[in-house]
Design a protein around this nucleic acid. Structure first.
Lengths: 341, 341
DNA sequence: TAACATAATGTTAGCGCTAACATCGAGTCA
DNA sequence: TGACTCGATGTTAGCGCTAACATTATGTTA
C-alpha cells in the first residue's frame, strides 16, 4: 500500500468531514461566503476554527491556475527611493488576498531577466517592474505574460502594459533651469550609479544648460560607482579641483547632494553663496539639513499606491482610461540655492 | 468530455515528450542533474530552452510538500537598518531554490502575528523575524512551526529557535560610556520610535550614566513618533531649551544624530566642543558628515547573511553548535566626540 | 558464475485544492 | 400542469509536479 505523507496539517477535507459537507462547499464558504447558506457557513467556520485550518496556498494556486502573487522587481533594496514605493505596494496588497513577491535586480539587466522568468514561473496575478529599460527578452516575456504589468518610477511612450511615474528628463531639466535662473554660471552635474533614469536626468539637465547658454561638458562628472554620501563629497572635491570656477551642482540624487554639502563645508565654502546645490527625490533629510537642500520632490509612495490600485482595477475587470500615469514632480527650493544677493 | 484549461504554459510533460523521456527524468534533470546521464540531460536542457519552460512552483511545492519559501518579517521597509539585512537575505537565497517572502509589521505586534499566521499557511521552509519581543501567541505559533526560525537584530537568552544579532543594551552602554570618558558632563538621550530594541539601548545608556556618576533622568527625551532627521533637529532643540547646560547626546539612531548635528549647527554650536553627538548603527553617511559623526557600528548585512547560512545549514541536516550568535558592534569614534582640549 | 550491489530510468498514485458539470428541490410563469 | 429558471450543494476529474516503488542494464564480489 503506497502512501504519501502530506504536510501533516489539516486539509480542506478534514474541515468538510467535521462540518458534514463536501469539500467544495468548504472551498466556496471560504472564498465566497455568499454562495453558501448561513447554516452551513456557520458550521464550516466552526470547523475551521476548531481545526485551526489554514488553506494551502500552493494547492489553491495550482487548482485555480491563479496564484494571487504580485511580483515586484526593483533594482535596489537599500535605496530609500524604492523603499518608499515598496512600502506603498505592501501597504496596499497586504490587506487583500494578494501576496507580494519581491526581487532585487541590483541594477543588472540580466538579473532582472532572471527574476522575471522566475516570477512568471509562479503564474503571478500581476507584475510590477521598476523602470522602462528592460532587455528585449525581458520585454517579450512580460508582453506575453497573461497578467497586468506596471512599469514604475519612470514614464515613456511605449509601455509594456501600464506605467506610473514621472519624467526624469523633465526633472533634470527643471533642476538645471532653476540653477540658471538663480544666476549660477558654472553649473556642474554629479552623477553616481548612472542607471538609465539618471542618464535621462542628465539629458534634461544638458538641455537646460544649452537653452540657458551654460552648457559645458567639462562640468559633467559621472561614475558607475553606486551613489553614497561619501561619494558626493569625494566627487565634488574632484570636480572643484578640475574646475575651481564651479559655482553650482545638480546631483543625481539626494545622497550625493548631501555629500556635496559636506564636502563644500569641509572646504570652507559657504552654501549657497559660493556653491549652489540641488538634489533629486527630496528625501526627508533634505529639509532638515543645514543649510536646507533644494531638491526635486517626487512622490514615491504615491507611485506604489497608484500601481497597486491600477492592478486591482484591471483584475476586477475595469478598463482604465489611461495606461500611462504621470505623477510629476515639484522643485522644492531651499536654502542651498537661495542667495541673498 | 471534460477539460480544464491550465495555465497555457508548457508543462514538464511537454518537455518530456520533446526530449523523449518520462516526466520524472525531466524533474530529476532539473532538480538534481547528477542523477541523470549526460546524454539525456543535454536533450532535456535543449527541450527546456526550446519550449521556454519554467517549472510551476506551486505544483512543485504541492507535490513535494516543500514550499522553499523563507518568510521574513521586519518592522519597517524604509529603515536602512533593515534594508541592509534584507539585502543580505535576498542575496543569499536568490541564488538557490528558496523564495523570500517578505512582510512588514510596521512595528505593530498584532500585525506581526497576522503575518506569521499567513506565512505559516504556506508551509515555509524557514522563518526569519526581527527582534525578540514577539507576542505570546506569535511565539507559540513559531515554536510549533515545523521549520527553523531565526530571530534577528537582537539577542537574548530565550530564543524561539535561533538568534543572530547583538546586544542593544551593551551598545547603548558603550555609547554612554564613551561620552563619559570624553569628559562630557550633561549627557542626554534622544530617542524616537522607541521600539523594544531602543528601550534596551536606553537601559544600557542609563547604566553607563549611573556608573559614571552622570545619571540624570531629566536629560532623557523620548517619543513614539517615528525617527527622522528633522525630528532629531527638533528634539535636540527642545532638550536644549529645557536644559541649556546639555553638552552631549546619544541618539537612538543615526537619522536622529544627523538631525541633532544640523540642529546644533543651526543654533550656532560647534561640534564637538559645545556638544558631543553619538549615533547608532553607523550608516554610511556618518563618516561623510562634517564634522563626521561617532556611532555604534553594527554589521546588518552580516546578520542577514549569517541567518541565511544558519537556515541552510539546518535544512541540510547539520547541527549547529551555537543557536545564539552575537555579532557584536564596534564604537566608531569620529570628530563629533573628539575634542581637542 | 551465482548472488548481489549500483546506476539510470520508468510507472503509478497522489499532494490539496477548485473548475466544470450534475443534481435536486422550490419557486415562477404561461 | 408542464416547462422553466434559480439557488444550494454534490460528484468527478483534473491543475503540474514529485514520492515511492518498480524495472532494467551494468558492474562487482566471492
Amino acid at each position: 500500500m503506497r502512501k504519501r505523507k502530506g504536510a501533516g496539517r489539516p486539509t480542506i477535507s478534514d474541515v468538510a468531514d467535521k462540518a458534514g459537507v463536501s469539500t467544495i462547499t468548504v472551498s466556496r464558504a471560504l472564498r465566497d461566503p455568499s454562495k453558501v447558506s448561513d447554516h452551513l457557513r456557520r458550521k464550516i467556520n466552526n470547523a475551521v476554527r476548531k481545526l485551526n485550518y489554514v488553506p494551502h496556498s500552493h494547492a489553491s494556486a495550482l487548482a485555480s491556475t491563479r496564484s494571487n502573487i504580485v511580483g515586484v522587481i526593483v533594482p535596489s533594496l537599500t535605496n530609500n527611493v524604492f523603499a518608499d514605493t515598496l512600502r506603498a505596494i505592501y501597504d496596499d496588497f497586504d490587506q487583500g488576498v494578494f501576496q507580494v513577491q519581491l526581487g532585487n535586480s541590483r541594477y543588472v539587466a540580466d538579473e532582472e531577466e532572471r527574476l522575471v522568468r522566475s516570477f512568471l514561473g509562479q503564474g503571478p496575478s500581476a507584475m510590477i517592474v521598476a523602470g522602462t529599460d528592460q532587455t528585449d527578452a525581458t520585454r517579450e516575456l512580460l508582453e506575453n505574460a497573461e497578467c497586468p504589468v506596471v512599469q514604475i518610477m519612470d514614464i515613456g511612450d511605449d509601455p509594456i502594459d501600464m506605467m506610473v511615474g514621472f519624467s526624469h528628463f523633465d526633472g533634470g531639466r527643471a533642476a538645471g533651469h532653476h540653477l540658471v535662473q538663480k544666476g549660477y554660471k558654472r553649473i556642474g552635474f554629479l552623477g553616481a550609479r548612472m542607471d538609465p533614469r539618471s542618464h535621462r536626468r542628465l539629458e534634461g539637465f544638458k538641455e537646460a544648460m544649452r537653452s540657458g547658454g551654460r552648457y559645458d561638458p567639462d562640468l559633467i562628472m559621472t561614475t558607475t560607482i553606486s551613489s553614497s554620501v561619501s561619494l558626493g563629497a569625494e566627487l565634488i572635491g574632484q570636480l572643484r579641483k578640475r574646475r575651481p570656477d564651479l559655482d553650482a551642482v545638480f546631483c543625481n540624487n539626494d545622497d550625493m547632494a548631501l555629500g556635496a554639502l559636506f564636502g563644500c563645508q569641509k572646504a570652507g565654502l559657504s552654501i549657497p553663496e559660493d556653491m549652489g546645490i540641488v538634489g533629486f527625490n527630496d528625501l526627508e533629510m533634505m529639509a532638515a539639513a543645514y543649510p536646507s537642500l533644494t531638491s526635486i520632490r517626487t512622490d514615491r509612495y504615491a507611485i506604489g499606491k497608484r500601481a497597486a490600485e491600477m492592478i486591482r482595477a484591471v483584475l476586477d475587470g475595469e478598463t482604465l482610461d489611461d495606461k500611462i500615469v504621470d505623477l510629476g514632480f515639484e522643485l522644492q527650493q531651499r536654502e542651498s540655492t537661495t542667495r541673498s544677493r
